[in-house]
Amino acid sequence: MLKLAKCAALNKSPQHLMKGALMTKNNQLIERLAPWIAVVALVVIWEVTVRVFDVPSFIFPSALETAQALVTYSGPIAMHSWQTFWTTLIGFGLGVAVGLVLGFIIGSSRFLYNACYPLLVGFNAIPKVAFVPILVVWFGIGSVPAILTAFLICFFPIVVNVATGLATLEPEMEDVLRVLGARRIDVLLKVGLPRSLPYFFASLKVAITLAFVGTVVSETVASNQGIGYLMMSAGSQMRMGLVFAGLLVISAMAMVMYELFAQLEKRMTGWAHRGQNR
C-alpha cells in the first residue's frame, strides 16, 4: 500500500513542477482520477504478485478469483452485508445519541469533565473484543452483541469531541454573554453547541468506521449472520476467495459511509473550513 502511494506521488509531482498554472485543469483531472488510478494499480500489483509467485489460492487468492467469488456468491454476500450494514447503523445511531448527550453533559461542567475524563479514557483502553463474551452471556449470540459492540467502540470519539468542543469555549466570549445576564444554558446553546459541531461531525467519520470494526469483530465470534460470520466460516473451509470478497465488501461499505459523513460535515460546518481556505 505504502509503496503504491509513493508511486502515485512520484507520477504526479513532475507534472506539477513542469507545467504549472497553464495546465491546472489537467492537474485537477489527474487529482480527481488519482484515487482510481491507485486502486487499479493495487489490483494489478495484487494479480501479478499472486501469479508470478504462484501462490496457491487457498493461501492468497488472486484478484480475479476474489472477483469471481464476489459474483458467484453475490446472493449470500448481499444478505450478510445487509445484516452487517444495519447492525452497524443501529450501533452507530446509539453511539451518536449517547455520545452527544454524554458529551454535552460532560462538556458543560468543569467538574464533570474532570471527574469523568479519566474514566472514559480507561474505558476506551479496554479492547472492545473483550466485551463480546460478556455480551454473549447476557444476550445470546446474534445481532444484539454486534450492535452493542459497534456502539461501545464508536461512542467514545463522539463523547470526547463534543465534550472538548464545549469545554474549550473562550472565556471572553462567555464574559460577553454573562454580562448580558445569560444563563449557563444560554451560553451552551448559543455558543457552545454550534462551536462543537465541527468536532462532532469530524468524530462521526471516525466513529462510523469504528462501528464497522465492532460489528465485524462481534460477528466473527458470536453470530451466525453477517460478513464477519461469512468470512469466518468461509475461512474454515479454505474458501479464501470468498473471505477476500467479504473484506472488499466491508471496506466498500465503510468507505461509502465515511464519504457520506465527510460530505455532511462539509455541508453542515462549512464556516469552520472556509475560514482556513482564505
Binding site: E170, E172, M173, D175, V176, V179, L180, V191, P194, R195, L197, T269, W271, A272, G275
Partner: peptide, 14 residues
C-alpha cells in the same frame, strides 16, 4: 445594563 468588547472581536464564525 452593560455591553462589553475585547481586544479579540470574538464574533461567532457561524
Amino acid at each position: 445594563i452593560s455591553g462589553m468588547a475585547f481586544q479579540n472581536a470574538n464574533l461567532l464564525p457561524w
